[in-house]
Amino acid sequence: MIVREATAEDVDAVVALRIESERWLHAAGIRQWTDRERGIRIIRDRIAVGGMYLVIDEDGTAIASLTLSGPDPDFWDSRDEPDSALYLYKLMITERYRGTGLGDELLDWACEQAEARGKRWLRLDCWRDNQGLQRYYLRRGFEHVRTMVVEGRDSGALFQRPATIRTATSRYLSTRNAPC
């Protein structure tokens, strides 16, 4: 498998991952990602400016995506030294690979990208009421920084882990995945 930056030609593949993720969340009783049109707009916009990555399997099928970018100013401010981190958004993995360790490996890959950019932390925000997701990140070396309530936002549980931490035991990703 390889990780590469998504292009305009990949919009449909990323949207398909988003729709699959929405369905999985809703089936699990998690009220998250309910505005599909907004989600598709965000995907298109992010691909246009860069920073969204796609994981492609040996058959050329998109099986995961994630975004690496700067801080969300609604959550991270000067007390956090926002430039000391790379920020992870919208990690999505197709059902076939959920629970296989690919997510752990992608978190390690994101940490490698943070280190390559001279960043100390990999940070993320997740939904305040998604306790399962928060536990997932805690088990993977993230620490809870704080939880914020911002009007109009359901996210706000803030996490970070040192960019030097690696937790994956699986080896799906090719060593050809050069830092971005």
Rank of each mutant, 00 (worst) to 15 (best):
L173Y: 09
T34P: 03
M52A: 06
E95A: 15
S21H: 01
V149Y: 01
L122R: 09
N130T: 10
L173K: 08
A28N: 12
R38N: 12
Q32E: 09
G50V: 07
A178G: 08
R36F: 07
E22A: 06
A48M: 01
G60Y: 08
A116K: 09
A110V: 05
L107V: 13
G103F: 03
G152E: 12
P82N: 05
H144R: 09
P71G: 07
M148F: 00
W24E: 12
L138G: 12
L106F: 04
Y53V: 02
C180M: 09
T167E: 11
W121P: 07
W109G: 00
P162T: 11
E22H: 04
A48F: 01
T61R: 14
E5D: 01
Q113M: 11
R123D: 01
T169G: 11
I93Y: 07
E5W: 00
Y89C: 03
G103T: 08
G39H: 05
D74R: 14
G101H: 08
E95T: 13
A168S: 15
Y87G: 06
R98M: 10
I40V: 15
E22P: 00
I63T: 08
I43A: 02
P162W: 00
F159C: 05
V149A: 13
E81D: 15
A48T: 07
R18H: 12
R41A: 14
N130A: 10
E112V: 10
I63A: 00
G70W: 00
E58V: 08
I2Q: 12
I165N: 08
I43C: 01
W24C: 06
R139E: 13
D77R: 14
I47E: 06
R117K: 12
I63K: 02
S174T: 13
P162Y: 03
G141H: 10
V14Y: 02
T147R: 05
G103I: 03
D125E: 15
D108I: 05
M148H: 01
R38T: 13
P82Y: 08
L66D: 02
M92I: 00
L107S: 01
F142V: 04
D45M: 03
G152C: 07
E115C: 04
L133W: 04
P82R: 11
V14W: 02
W76M: 06
L124A: 12
A6G: 08
G103D: 04
D83H: 13
L124N: 04
S155G: 14
I93F: 07
L91Q: 08
M1E: 09
A8T: 13
A64V: 05
N177E: 02
E115W: 01
T169N: 05
W127K: 11
F75N: 01
A16W: 00
E81L: 10
I30D: 01
N130E: 08
G60K: 12
Y172W: 15
T147E: 12
S78G: 03
D59M: 04
E105T: 06
D57P: 12
R44L: 02
R146P: 00
D10G: 09
L124I: 10
S78W: 06
